[in-house]
Design a protein around this nucleic acid. Structure first.
Length: 579
DNA sequence: GTATAACGCCACCTCCGGAG
DNA sequence: CTCCGGAGGTGGCGTTATAC
């Protein structure tokens, strides 16, 4: 009835969510985004360690989300992966000590009364030839040490020094009593990990948003990792029974019906031609299901944003919001003001939805450009440029950025330093950032980070940068954790060759004064040109000319992170004083 | 059991006008 | 130009409801 008459009557959607696969390639895109490109600010930077670690647990064990995080149907119970469901031990592998960590899927679907059938998975340390970024033990050790999970060891060197005793093949590293009931993957607060377990919905959203930032048009869901994990497992000649155990299935049909991709891995071509069969031809097609575009818009292009702001429905919402504000100020009644506030929230949400809709629209029509076909200078999305503008503010992450993608054993000096880096990311405060150049007397050059003092020295130094064409591409004022990461610059001044270098590269330390200056300076520049059909662009290395000053400003916003244009800006006479 | 939308709350950010 | 403070907006995240 529901799928037939009712569906017709109500006009229900029959759309199904597209099936995506979190293949190794897609997984690496997400890790790269998280560690090497990501300008997103989590409530705490330690979230990266937890996300990265948890993601690995999922793809290596095929676990469902509710078996590691707190599931929706177990809301408020704190149930999920806890320390007491896991065991860590050290054993021997080819004459070398190796840490192994087992995790039991205590809350596996359909197994609540089958204690002995619950799947237990083992993750291990030695992965020759593989980068740190996919080593689960490296990430888990950092998480364990940051909460003090070991009964007898508190630093990484102590853990790595443990070897099995002579009369035994293994040695268990016991958990401290106070962590047994704690979740392995807790919720994050601005002050670091809490003792509360992270919920499924929180983690799913994190993964979804991360995959979008990594350029995947169809967002990745954890089930995509499970699907891929099960498909890969079928390639290795395990028996059907072993695979069922690994997947946590109780019915032989489930794997075939629900998990194996419709993109078949059977090599029909080779079979027919009686050639040795291949098994690598399908994976790239599964990777492709996420429709990745590395340049996927993360924010609305300036022109479209401007048009949306002037659209009828958008303006209507804005007007109603203004009316509401007036009514809210007028009323004394709590009930009425509560009602008005809820309506206000609703309107704000509607406006946000309009933006999201537009974003989806531009994304779906966005061109995919092969890097080799790109002509001229390439400008990334404003959002995508953010990490490069902030990286000098987070030295720990800056170090990890390269280390994590190195190939070396966990027990090497690089491995140990990576674990330590992850631990400090988990434990450090994220409330305030420290700038290398934050000093009262000495200023640092924002291009090369060298210290400098005195007007004359600055002039000579900046002249060097100008002569070598080392001018920055982004001009915006960037604040990061209450500290100025970058002072604002003015495009028009920067490319005005008649000005002294200190003036051209002058940095505004206040958002307001920067915006005011660039608006006025731009108008001055345009007016000075007089009447022309095309407005030339001051930096010929970037682009040539625009049809109108508005088009030029859109370019400045998209490619150079200029602020939205201030319509009320007036041309004053050009100020001479810059200190 | 999983995934997501809608909603509420909260901390923080931006904007803007006035004063110094 | 800079500081200040209030109003309003934004983004993150938890909660709840609901589709599949």
């Amino acid at each position: 009835y529901i799928k037939g008459p009712l569906k017709k009557k109500l006009g229900l959607s029959t759309a199904t969510q597209p099936k995506t696969y979190l293949t190794l390639e897609n997984h690496m895109y997400m890790e790269r985004q998280l560690w090497q490109n990501d300008g997103h600010e989590y409530v705490h930077d330690g979230s990266r360690v937890l996300i990265s670690g948890k993601l690995k647990c999922h793809v290596f064990t095929s676990a469902r989300v509710g078996e590691i995080s707190e599931g929706e149907s177990r809301r408020g119970t704190g149930k999920g992966l806890r320390y007491k469901d896991t065991v860590i031990l050290v054993a021997w592998k080819d004459g070398e000590p190796e840490l192994r960590w087992s995790l039991k899927r205590e809350f596996a679907k359909g197994m609540h009364n089958k204690e002995l059938q619950k799947p237990t998975h083992i993750l291990y340390e030695l992965l020759p030839g593989q980068p740190f970024i996919i080593n689960p033990i490296l990430f888990m050790l950092a998480i364990f040490l940051a909460v003090g999970a070991f009964k007898k060891y508190s630093i990484i060197e102590q853990v790595l020094a443990v070897k099995p005793p002579t009369d035994q093949q293994y040695w268990e590293l016991e958990w401290a009593d106070h962590v047994l009931d704690l979740p392995v993957f807790p919720e994050m607060s601005p002050d670091g990990p809490t003792e509360k377990i992270q919920t499924v919905s929180a983690f799913c959203t994190q993964i979804r948003d991360l995959s979008l930032r990594a350029g995947m048009e169809i967002p990745v869901i954890i089930y995509g990792g499970r699907r891929e994990a099960l498909i890969q497992a079928t390639r290795n000649g395990y028996s059907k029974e072993e695979l069922m155990k690994y997947a946590g299935h109780t019915n032989q049909m489930t794997m075939t019906r629900d998990y194996l991709s419709s993109i078949t891995v059977v090599d029909g071509l080779a079979s027919f031609l009686k050639l040795p069969p291949r098994d690598d031809q399908a994976e790239d097609f599964r990777s492709m299901t996420v429709k990745r575009n590395p340049e996927l818009f993360l924010s609305l292009p300036a022109k479209i944003q401007d048009e949306l702001r002037q659209r009828e429905d958008y303006v209507a919402i804005t007007n109603e919001l203004e009316d509401l504000t007036r009514e809210m100020n007028a009323t004394d009644s709590l009930v009425v003001s509560q009602k008005l506030r809820s309506r206000r929230n609703q309107l704000l949400r509607q406006r946000r939805m309009l933006k999201k809709e537009e974003l989806n629209k531009v994304r779906s029509t966005q061109d995919r450009v092969h890097p080799s076909e790109r002509k001229g200078k390439y400008h990334v999305d404003q959002e995508r440029s953010r990490f490069n503008r902030l990286r000098h503010m987070t030295p720990e992450r800056e170090r990890l950025l390269n280390t994590l993608f190195c190939v070396a054993p966990l027990r090497s000096p690089e491995g140990i330093s990576a674990v330590k880096g992850l631990i400090s990311l988990l434990k450090n405060s994220c409330r305030v950032a420290y700038h290398k150049g934050e000093h009262k007397l000495v200023d640092f050059c924002f291009i090369c980070n060298n210290p400098m003092a005195g007007q004359k020295a600055w002039e000579i130094h900046y002249q060097g940068h100008v002569a070598r064409h080392e001018l920055p591409l982004r001009y915006d004022f960037v604040k990061f954790r209450r500290t100025i990461a970058y002072a604002g610059r003015c495009m028009t001044c920067m490319h005005d060759t008649r000005l002294p270098a200190t003036r051209r590269l002058y940095g505004f330390k206040k958002q307001a004064s920067w915006e005011k200056h660039v608006n006025e300076c731009f108008l001055f520049h345009v007016n000075n040109l007089g009447k022309t059909d095309m407005i030339p662009y001051p930096d010929p290395e970037c682009s040539i000319a625009y049809e109108s000053d508005q088009q030029l400003w859109y370019h400045l916003q998209d490619a150079h992170s200029y602020p939205p244009r201030n319509a009320t800006a007036k041309t004053k006479k050009k100020r001479k004083t810059f200190s």
